[in-house]
C-alpha cells in the first residue's frame, strides 16, 4: 500500500482523537513518574513493574476505537514525541523505542485478527503481547540484566499481568464506557457494534 492511501485511510477526527490520546498519555506519564519513583523506593524493580500496563493503554485504546491498520503505530509515535516535548524522566530514546516496541506488538496481534475481533480476550492479549519486546530493550537500557534470573522472571511476570489487566482489561472497559456516552458515533467501534446488532 502506498504512503498516500495509508494516510488517507484516517479521517481528521481520527487523527485528532489520536492526538488527544497522545496528550492524555503525556499527562498520565508525568503523574506516573512520581508514582514510579515512589514504587522504586518501596519495592525496587518488581514494584515498578506493576504499573507498566498504564503506559501502554493509549495506543491500545486508540486501536480499539478506530480499528484501522496503523492506528497503534501512529498513536504510540505521537505519544512518544509529545511526551518527549513535554519532558519525561527517561529521555527521547527510551520513549521512542518503547513506543515502537508497543506499536509493533499491537499492530501484529491486530493484523492476525484482521482488525475484526475485539473481545475482552483479544484486548487482554494486546496488553500481554505489548510487554515482552520492550522488556528486552528496557532490560538492556536500564540495567535489569544483572539482577539475576529469579528477579528478572518475577518482574517479567508482574509486567505481563500488568499488561493483561491495566492495559488490556482497562482498555476494553474504558472503550465500552466511552461508547455508552454516545459521543463516538463517527468511529468504527460504534459502527461495528451497530453491524453486530
Amino acid at each position: 500500500m502506498n504512503e498516500r492511501s495509508a494516510i488517507q485511510r484516517f479521517t481528521t477526527l481520527e487523527i485528532v482523537l489520536m492526538a488527544v490520546l497522545a496528550m492524555a498519555n503525556a499527562v498520565l506519564s508525568t503523574f506516573l513518574s512520581t508514582v514510579n519513583q515512589f514504587l522504586t523506593t518501596l519495592g525496587g524493580p518488581i514494584a515498578t513493574s506493576t504499573i507498566v500496563g498504564l503506559y501502554m493503554i493509549y495506543g491500545v485504546l486508540a486501536m480499539y476505537i478506530i480499528r484501522k491498520p496503523g492506528t497503534a503505530f501512529i498513536t504510540y509515535m505521537l505519544g512518544a514525541i509529545v511526551q518527549t516535548l513535554l519532558g519525561n524522566s527517561y529521555g527521547i530514546a527510551a520513549s521512542l523505542v518503547a513506543a515502537l516496541c508497543y506499536a509493533v506488538a499491537v499492530e501484529l496481534v491486530c493484523a492476525i485478527f484482521k482488525y475484526k475481533r475485539w473481545t475482552m480476550g483479544v484486548t487482554m492479549l494486546l496488553g500481554l503481547c505489548a510487554v515482552p519486546l520492550w522488556f528486552i530493550f528496557a532490560a538492556n537500557m536500564f540495567g535489569y540484566l544483572k539482577w539475576g534470573m529469579g528477579q528478572l522472571t518475577i518482574a517479567f511476570i508482574v509486567r505481563c499481568l500488568s499488561g493483561l489487566i491495566l492495559c488490556g482489561m482497562l482498555t476494553k472497559m474504558i472503550g465500552d464506557a466511552m461508547v455508552r456516552t454516545g459521543l463516538l458515533r463517527s468511529f468504527n467501534i460504534v459502527k461495528d457494534a451497530k453491524l453486530r446488532s
Binding site: 487523527i15 492526538a19 503525556a26 514525541i81
Partner: peptide, 15 residues
Amino acid sequence: PYRFAYAVSLSLRFL
C-alpha cells in the same frame, strides 16, 4: 506527512 506532524502540534495545543 503533515497530517500526522500537525497532530503533534495539536496535542501540545490541547494541553
